[in-house]
Amino acid sequence: MGMDEMLSIRDAFLISAIVDEQRASREFLMDFAERPKQPSNAQRLEQLLSDAFRDPSARPDMKRCDQAINMLFDIIDMIPKPYRAQPFAVISYIMWWMGQEGAIAAAISALAIDDRCSLAAIVCSAVERHIGPAWTSET
């Protein structure tokens, strides 16, 4: 439910799934979730996402990503429908990141709940345009 109230919580969860702990420490993630508009936090998050997207050696940790997806599905099962958009959006992003076909279905689930869910819209657009992280064959 916090993801719906503060997108920084969503973004911290997302980064924790796709970036290793050496580059995105627990301390940074907690600080970002609490103070996302602090310039150093915002810049660091942007840099982490950019590096992960552009670096062909930045392959996903499939086990970590699968655990995050499973955790989010468990959360979705426990919360009221209006709060499910952001968890579905994070699932869609992680699946897109992993190159899984379920990304678009999760993004559409998020958009069906909240048609203004920007993360889900970004994933839909990326999938439609065959845009993926550098480690995939999508360009």
Rank of each mutant, 00 (worst) to 15 (best):
Q47L: 14
Q47P: 08
Q47K: 14
Q47F: 15
L48A: 08
L49S: 08
S50H: 11
S50Q: 12
D51N: 11
D51S: 07
A52P: 00
A52C: 10
F53M: 12
F53Q: 14
F53D: 11
F53C: 09
F53E: 15
R54C: 08
D55R: 02
D55S: 13
P56I: 08
S57F: 11
S57P: 10
S57D: 11
S57H: 15
S57N: 10
S57M: 13
S57W: 07
A58T: 02
A58F: 12
A58G: 01
A58E: 00
R59H: 12
R59K: 15
D61S: 04
D61L: 08
M62A: 13
M62Q: 12
K63L: 10
R64Y: 05
C65R: 02
C65Y: 01
C65P: 03
D66K: 12
D66P: 06
D66F: 10
D66A: 09
Q67T: 14
I69L: 04
N70L: 12
N70D: 13
M71C: 07
M71T: 13
L72S: 07
L72K: 03
L72R: 06
L72W: 03
L72F: 00
F73S: 04
F73T: 08
D74P: 01
I75Y: 06
I75M: 12
I75V: 09
I76G: 06
I76S: 05
D77L: 10
D77V: 04
D77C: 08
D77I: 00
M78L: 09
I79Y: 03
I79W: 01
I79K: 00
K81E: 15
P82G: 02
P82A: 11
Y83F: 14
Y83V: 03
